[in-house]
Write a protein that binds this DNA or RNA. Structure first.
Lengths: 118, 118
DNA sequence: GTTTTATATTAGTGTATTCTAATATTAGCA
DNA sequence: TGCTAATATTAGAATACACTAATATAAAAC
């Protein structure tokens, strides 16, 4: 049944929905869900570009600055930021009537890898 | 109009759809498209788990080994691998009647960062 | 307190995604 | 030459997504 050319050291007896990762240990269902959420949150042009702009702004950037750059409605920008926040890619702080967004270390690491491997 | 708390060293005069990245230079439209394609390709449970399995198998793994692990139809597995290949996350080689898939350096780097920052 | 400005939420719509079932292709084997 | 096994392709259906327009909230300014 198996067509593996070499022996299969790992993953043949994997419990369904637990997944094997590169160095031989297992990934919990929760970790998979977290990663997939992270990746799909970033896998959209509006959100990706929003995060790029946020990561480029040293002290955070507010929604009103993002809106003209992204070329979609204010509502769409707000929804994009909300999703980025929900998936742990940005932090936000309130200052007066503005909300400033900053990128999390995870987000910065991901952008760095994308740049380094493109 | 702008509500930036500090001066904005970068990105105020961004050409539409060219995006500013973390260290101050610009990202081409093409680079954005590439990254978004990469991220959305991985932002799906079936494809993410397929890539994890591929990355865990030293010498590549064939579709027939992936199918029982992923719990979707053979057609869905084939479509998943096709998309991963198309977005540069896996390579494939033909050997007899099997096709072996391996992860690209970009894919491995992304998985590593996800593991390190989760 | 009313108005204005920044952001969030909701509802609805068009489009894209992801799967299954069926069929096609391709390569080894009898 | 057929037959079987591995993978790919296509078509169609259910569901998820991303947006806009309209409305709500919340804080400053007047």
């Amino acid at each position: 049944m198996t067509a593996q050319s070499t022996d299969e050291a790992c993953c043949t007896d994997t419990h369904r929905s637990d997944v094997c990762c590169a160095d031989g240990h297992f990934l919990s269902e929760e970790a998979v869900a977290t990663d997939v959420e992270t990746l799909s949150a970033l896998g959209n042009e509006t959100r990706y570009e929003a995060l790029r702009l946020i990561a480029a702004a040293e002290d955070g950037i507010c929604v009103c600055d993002l809106e003209p750059e992204l070329g979609v409605s204010q509502s769409a920008v707000s929804q994009a930021l909300s999703r980025l926040f929900g998936s742990g890619l940005v932090e936000r702080r309130k200052e007066g009537r503005w909300r400033y967004y900053t990128a999390t270390p995870r987000a910065e690491a991901l952008l760095r890898v994308l740049d380094e491997t493109r």
